[in-house]
């Protein structure tokens, strides 16, 4: 087949190609341990392996390079390894609200929960696929902005995450913060720990990193509306944060769909597809993120929906040169293009 291209509008290459980045928070029960019981969330957790396999298959088919931000504890084989690699008790965060700490759950050593807490096989599956980046999501899903967290405790947690990575032969250059909580101090700690980039939130009041208790109904409602009918300015800016840690700004959270498509699901799908087209045509960036366990309850339907997005991205890659990139690749590219904006963000 010849590859003739006729009548392309405007000379190709007049704009830098847009980018499409995917990041996933791979955390299993560690992502919800302070909010949900295992029993109430078992359906999601049981489906996670199927969902991850499905995502990896789709990423491979459509050439998507994704960043998998993984909780360090999830990478451990069992309670013994987790205890051995964890920070010393004195170095762990001492939240004002003790329910936020993962360590009491670890101390229970409940064998029935182990399959929801440890999944080194899952991480290995990701690692074996080409073009997938493993990033850290902290060791114990710690919350940088919650009362009681200190820079020292956060640094100790990152050191533990690095120990797990070393044990698995993984080195990190990117971090995704649990509950998207970070500030300048946290960013400096991350830079000191040898990390280079992080996932930032859009620069808007609705998405300002804040404590969980500050997520009031108005903020949640605003984000919900914005997810389906966007009104927040999403012109992505790669921002030099504290200590020159570089941000890859998330543009959309892929909300999980139920077993059947509703109007809201279709609206969100359309919004993501429209953002991809805009990125391809205008040279901007799309950074989509979600939790694999969100797919767990209805994996087939969610994977179908994801495939629509990835097919669209691949088509735009063919027609407009949209580039698929991990977080590390995305930020490195933007840095080399000298499009770093000298602003500070993320103060809580």
């Amino acid at each position: 087949m010849t590859d003739d291209v006729i009548m392309r509008k405007g000379p190709p290459g007049t704009l830098p190609p847009g980018t499409f980045t995917v990041s996933l928070d791979l955390e299993s029960y560690w992502g919800v341990f302070d909010k949900r019981t295992v029993a109430s969330y078992a359906a999601h957790l049981d489906g996670i392996r199927h969902a991850v396999d499905g995502m990896l298959g789709l990423f491979c088919r459509y050439g998507v390079r994704a960043t998998w931000a993984t909780v360090g504890l999830l990478m451990c084989s069992d309670y013994d390894e987790a205890a051995a690699l964890a920070p010393a008790p004195a170095a762990r965060p001492r939240y004002d609200d003790p329910r936020l700490s993962a360590y009491p759950l670890l101390a229970r050593r409940d064998r029935s929960l182990a399959r929801y807490l440890f999944a080194p096989d899952l991480v290995e599956r990701v690692r074996q696929r080409e073009g997938q980046e493993l990033a850290t999501h902290t060791f114990a899903h710690v919350y940088a902005l919650e009362a009681g967290m200190t820079p020292e405790a956060f640094a100790a947690d990152l050191a533990a995450a690095k120990r797990v990575g070393d044990a698995r032969g993984v080195s990190y250059s990117s971090i995704v913060f649990p509950r998207n909580q970070y500030d300048d101090t946290t960013l400096r700690v991350c830079a000191s720990a040898g990390l280079h980039c992080y996932r930032a939130q859009p620069q808007h009041t609705l998405y300002r990193p804040r404590r969980d208790g500050d997520q009031n109904m108005l903020v949640r409602a605003g984000r919900l509306v914005d997810a389906h009918v966007p009104f927040v300015d999403r012109s992505v800016r790669v921002t030099a944060g504290g200590a020159n840690l570089v941000a890859s700004t998330a543009t959309a959270f892929l909300r999980p769909a139920g077993a059947r498509s509703g109007v809201a699901d279709v609206l969100q799908l359309r919004r993501v597809l429209a953002e991809l087209r805009r990125a391809a045509r205008c040279g901007t960036d799309v950074h989509l993120w979600w939790h694999p366990h969100n797919f767990g309850a209805a994996p087939e339907h969610n994977l179908e929906r994801l495939e629509v997005i990835l097919r669209h991205a691949r088509a735009l890659s063919c027609t407009h040169g949209l580039r698929m990139m991990t977080m590390a690749e995305h930020t490195a590219r933007r840095m080399t293009e000298h499009t770093v904006w000298p602003t500070t963000e993320g103060t809580a």
Partner: peptide
């Protein structure tokens, strides 16, 4: 016997694709 691809622009639509195809 032979095949060629076309590239649709923003100005193209259902009624212009056949002309792009014929042109190729």
């Amino acid at each position: 016997l032979a095949q060629a691809l076309i590239t649709a622009t923003d100005d193209d639509s259902f009624v212009t694709y056949p002309w792009l195809q014929l042109a190729a």
